[in-house]
């Protein structure tokens, strides 16, 4: 793969968006995340890598409290977004999730029209005062999802009728439509073919201008291509966290090195 791009990309010194301290997650009796602390910067793409079952997706789902929907899950420690603890009792997960959008592993468009898929978030959050504004939001989001040109003539067609890659970009557009500040992506390309993957990756790079993007991936090449920062998870521990270039060229921890060189995972 073309890893030359890593060195070309300068990393801006930007403010911290998400700050996690001593996060532990339990699923029933299983200890899924063990004492993870990490600072994620604004306007960057941060990649979580690691072998399957290492806890990277679990940690991602803590950031918008999606783990709340699982009865047996229990989260301790602090996760701060813009300095506010999202596990504070006063925080409503509904309000939080409007601010922290999420894109899932499998494209999951609702069985509605393309327009209604994108308009769903703005409607429930009351972001548009009238139809004209809603139309604007939908168009803007679809453009930002890099799918506007492909669907602008068939906004009434069902979202489930699109191809896999289009569906995933529709889901990204849908997530963007609620105007989040953070976008969480859980292996967004694992169900896509290489061409669709390339399109989505290009899109992720562009989303960096407006959002703090956190992406979980099991493909090291993908992490290398799209991210500025990389965190390596192993068996529930955050093993190493740093600049993507540094992680891939000079890992400090032997486990990271084993993973990157293909000996574990």
């Amino acid at each position: 793969m073309n890893d030359m791009r890593i060195t070309e990309r300068a990393v801006d010194l930007s403010e911290t968006k998400i700050s996690a301290r001593n996060v532990q997650v339990f699923y029933g009796d299983t200890h899924a995340i063990k004492d993870v602390s990490v600072d994620i910067a604004d306007k960057t793409v941060t990649a979580f890598i690691g072998p399957s079952g290492c806890g990277k997706s679990t940690f991602l789902r803590c950031i918008n409290r999606m783990n709340d929907t699982i009865d047996t899950a229990r989260v301790t420690g602090d996760i701060l977004i813009d300095g506010e603890d999202i596990y504070d009792r006063r925080v409503d997960p509904v309000q939080l999730r409007a601010k922290v959008g999420m894109v899932f592993q499998k494209p999951n468009p609702f069985p509605k029209s393309i327009y209604d898929n994108v308009a769903y978030g703005p409607r429930i959050h009351g972001l548009a005062r009238n139809k004209v504004e809603l139309d604007e939001i939908v168009e803007r989001s679809l453009r930002r999802g890099a799918i506007w040109d492909e669907v602008k003539d068939r906004l009434d067609a069902p979202g489930t009728g699109l191809s896999g890659g289009q569906q995933q970009r529709l889901c990204i557009a849908r997530a963007v439509a609620t105007e989040p500040e953070i976008l969480l992506m859980d292996e967004p390309c694992s169900a896509l073919d290489p061409i669709a993957t390339a399109q989505v990756e290009e899109l992720i790079d562009e989303l960096r201008r407006n959002y703090s993007v956190v992406i979980v991936t099991h493909s090291m090449q993908q992490a290398a291509r799209v991210s500025q920062k990389t965190a390596f998870f192993h068996l529930g521990h955050l093993v190493e966290y740093g600049e993507t270039g540094q992680i891939f060229t000079t890992p400090r921890d032997p486990r990271t090195e084993s993973y990157i060189t293909g000996r574990i995972g």
Partner: peptide
């Protein structure tokens, strides 16, 4: 995030 909006 700590203040619930009216809508929420």
């Amino acid at each position: 995030l700590l203040r619930e909006t009216d809508r929420v």
